[in-house]
Design a protein around this nucleic acid. Sequence first.
DNA 1: ATTTAAGTATGATCTGGATCATAAATTAAA
DNA 2: TTTAATTTATGATCCAGATCATACTTAAAT
Lengths: 205, 205
Amino acid sequence: MLILVNQVLLQIMTIKYLLDSNFKPTSYEKGDVIYEPGAQPRAVYFIKSGKVRMVTVNDDGKEFIQGIFKTNEYFGEPALLLNKPYLAYTIATQDSEIIAVKGDDFLKMLKDHPDFSMKLIQTLSHRLFYKSMMLEELANEHAEHRIRTLVAYLFKDVEHGQELKITRQQLADMSGLRVETVIRIIKKLSDQKELKLIRGKIIKI
Amino acid sequence: MLILVNQVLLQIMTIKYLLDSNFKPTSYEKGDVIYEPGAQPRAVYFIKSGKVRMVTVNDDGKEFIQGIFKTNEYFGEPALLLNKPYLAYTIATQDSEIIAVKGDDFLKMLKDHPDFSMKLIQTLSHRLFYKSMMLEELANEHAEHRIRTLVAYLFKDVEHGQELKITRQQLADMSGLRVETVIRIIKKLSDQKELKLIRGKIIKI
DNA sequence: ATTTAAGTATGATCTGGATCATAAATTAAA
DNA sequence: TTTAATTTATGATCCAGATCATACTTAAAT
């Protein structure tokens, strides 16, 4: 029923469109903060290259990873469109080039390009799916179930026999567990042949 | 910066538009299931009157309330637009009249009415905000903090001195806690004068 | 008005995963 | 290559909140 332009292609075209329209990327080094909770949103951020993590931090300094955004993806629209202060930090996890598109320009993009608008609706829907899944897990499921679900989700982008490029700490920060707990569970999943461990690396079977 | 039609007004106009366009509502009785997890989405559901809860249920039968939808709101778009099976049940919590708009018609609505499309983007953004907030709470915060945050959020639509129309069980099902825990915490918040209890009812101070 | 059901209340016990401590292995930096 | 920094690993203890049990209160149904 849904006949839509290939998603990745549309993403790449979007970055190209921005560059052609003379939007200039800013360079961020690994660890740089793009925005902080409480700040008033002024732009939507398109990643020309690199990777960022979006994290909320509680009073004890414990991080929760709300999302990870990679090359050709964008972030920061919800807060901008609702005109509400950010809830999360966004931090470059590696050196990155990012195009900040000011609010008015972003609205114009949405208005002038219905296909981009449709793509945004899909992107938001996808993020909602992920968050709904994780909410169910955090609310109702025990540690082992949480990690099994999360790893299955992350394995979607990984080939059989290939490594899942993520640390135990990151899995902990995505699942609301502690790193020791994640380590023990990953070991257990390995014992149960649900994944393979090679020199600590998590390998998809 | 954002100049948008009043949200509630646009919602009501949408229902009116559907009725004018000869979409017919279906009646559901309290407890009726509108859709179930696993089912393939075919429509988006607009609530002409009534109320529904969207819940995921784990293997032990424990419910988690993903969202509550009321008159003039709609639900079920993300799964439809991603063409993925539903994750949750949607159940009428009171007698309701609901207009099922088939996928193609919904896409046509989005295409023909950019303001509706823009409104959907805002609605999805708002739901993402709520889910991000709850994820942070479930991942990082203890019971008392969770309930305090949730009650503060729900109090937004309640006048001072008025009752929060929600049961302890529903708060439990939204926060991933057990009903006994919620009862104890609500009592504690009452002792701390953060809310008032009158014959068991939670009153906003 | 009476019965029934749903929701609230409260104590006692139990347990999954946090916390603490310590060390080994791997990767990055000097 | 050596040192330093991350990440993985593992045991011991602890505690917040689940679980279990039981009763009371309020609202709904007959």
